[in-house]
Nucleic acid binder design. Structure first.
Lengths: 334, 334
DNA sequence: CTGTTAGCGCGTTCAC
DNA sequence: GTGAACGCGCTAACAG
């Protein structure tokens, strides 16, 4: 039952292995009838190509690597889901690794991935200076940055237009009458943080609103508990902001908790807006206004871009740099 | 730089490839000095073993498959994180697939995994009768069930003691003075549903409390919106329960929403208890009392069990069947 | 302790 | 249009 090789089907179909190979891989130079026969025999025998033999011979392994900073972050798990679906459609397998937003983990994850004879790599980089990514560029392993990019590094990436998203969110807050709008930012080494900050500042400026330093919390937080701590402090500042725009929904959940503990009603006393639109944002007692990122699509597009590159559909010299459009989702927290 | 093979290092160290292989794989029968020399040369040349060649030759691929029903469910992403950490420690790679709780997807995912020449498979099965798992048993691929198991199927699994967890949760509710406690159950094809129901019933019986049919909602829900609908109905029943014990936190989130809409204060008018302890449960306006499952540990233990089996540390005839202990986490919703 | 030999399953020349 | 032979990088017998 097991271990049906090309030889078995060659024997059964009374042809050579070469011919079988041609039939199986849709190569030219083969009679249509023999091809059909081979295919049917292969099916009958329930033949499965041995990826290892194939990979060894042809250095084309139909396997993609995915490095993500934190799979327990619902943003990334949604992205991964998109990656998985897109890769599966083209019969690519996924090798997965988690770096916990740690530099050392990223370094070693990349090393591991380099060992894997992958066709390509999808990676959400952690890192200030992009050194690991720079190293990666030295390699000939095709890779696409996932949701983050480096301004000073020419690479493929699929990300979102976060300046725009943040601008819209901030402007929405302003239109609702807020003037003292704080921004609870993520780590500055993430491109999204910079962009969201920029969008926030632009919107404030466009509406002639001042942005004192005290409005910007630069705590490099990415987690709920981090958001909680940071928001607690923001709230205690004077003048107290009437709204907090958060780097992410995950972080915003922490902010909501902080507001509740401080006895602030949302949105009456404090508006809160997030980013990403993770599924839990609708579950809050006050459903969260947020900027939706098409997460599955982000993952799928990145995977497709990578597979295109691997397949040689992209020119060697140009880079695939996609920006997905965000969408403001107004709920009840603002 | 690239493509350093064992031959290169054999040449450089002036030994045979076999010796290199022995050194690299910690095999016996090798001089300590030559071994050290080889290792240093390998390091110097930045040698990376070709997994495909190795896998082809030795049918030992250092790769594990993971099939999960829904990676965007925070319960599973936490589990996956544990799997990843444990596998990484032993230099195993992970191939990942998502089935979306669909039978067809599971079937095809297993087929794909069978193609992959994996060493073993971790799987969260979806399915009433365990047919796909039965098929899997026919294969000689070692596998461990992840968080779910089948009563009538002898397999390896790592799960939790849910009878106990549910018992504790229910008893806690009783001790808080509740008598009319409803149980909002999950799909009956999941082992956890059966166990949690059993624990609930046992606790009720132990305290001489009746369990009319109207207290049990058997809607096969796994989602928040499902929990919402089911809870809405439960609440409207008469006599109205004073407490709802939910199959999972995810479902409980929906129940909380339903309570809010019905104008019921938690816990004054209605107590709600969940299961799993996903990280969002602390973010509710009323932090959720729940039964914690050690999710990372669950993943890690399952991965370790599988790797032990693969390594031949386990007897062929016996099954690894682990049950982790749950922990009641009392917050403010009860 | 070490080296020689022989494949693992497949794709790819090159002949026919 | 088809097949024979070779080798991808590595490990597993066997000899020495």
């Amino acid at each position: 039952m097991d271990k049906v090789t090309m030889e078995d089907i060659a024997e059964r179909a009374d042809v050579s292995m070469t011919t079988v190979s041609r039939a199986l891989n849709n190569k030219p130079d083969i009679d249509d009838q023999t091809k059909r026969k081979i295919l049917s025999v292969a099916d009958e025998l329930n033949y499965r190509p041995n990826r290892f033999a194939k990979g060894l011979r042809s250095s084309n392994t139909s396997t993609l690597g995915v490095i993500v900073t934190d799979i327990s972050n619902p943003f990334f798990s949604a992205v991964l889901k998109g990656v998985e679906a897109a890769a599966g459609k083209q019969d690519y397998s996924l090798i997965f690794e988690d770096t916990d937003e740690s530099y050392d983990m990223e370094q070693s994850a990349i090393q591991t991935m380099l060992n894997e004879q992958l066709d390509g790599l999808l990676i959400t980089p952690i890192q200030t200076n992009g050194k690991t990514i720079l190293d990666l560029k030295q390699t000939n392993l095709p890779f696409v940055l996932l949701g983050r990019y480096f301004e000073d590094l020419e690479t493929n990436y699929v990300a979102t237009n976060d300046v725009k998203g943040a601008y819209q969110a901030t402007e929405h807050l302003i239109e609702r009458g807020n003037e003292k709008i704080a921004f609870l930012n993520g780590p500055n080494y993430i491109s999204s943080s910079k962009e969201r900050l920029e969008g926030y500042q632009k919107a404030m400026k466009a509406h002639d609103l001042p942005v004192p330093d005290s409005f910007i919390a630069d705590k490099s937080v990415t987690t709920m508990s981090g958001g909680y701590e940071a928001a607690k402090e923001l709230i205690s500042r004077s003048p107290r902001p009437t709204a907090i725009f958060c780097f992410s929904d995950f972080v915003a959940l922490g902010a909501v908790k902080a507001a509740r503990e401080a006895g602030l009603k949302i949105p009456q006393n404090l508006s809160v807006v997030g980013y990403d639109d993770i599924c839990f944002s609708t579950c809050l007692e006050v459903p969260l206004t947020t900027v939706r990122i098409p997460k599955r699509e982000l993952g799928a597009k990145a995977a497709n871009a990578l597979m295109d590159i691997v397949a040689g559909n992209e020119s060697e010299d140009s880079f695939t740099q996609l920006r997905l459009e965000p969408e403001l989702i107004i709920r009840e927290s603002s």
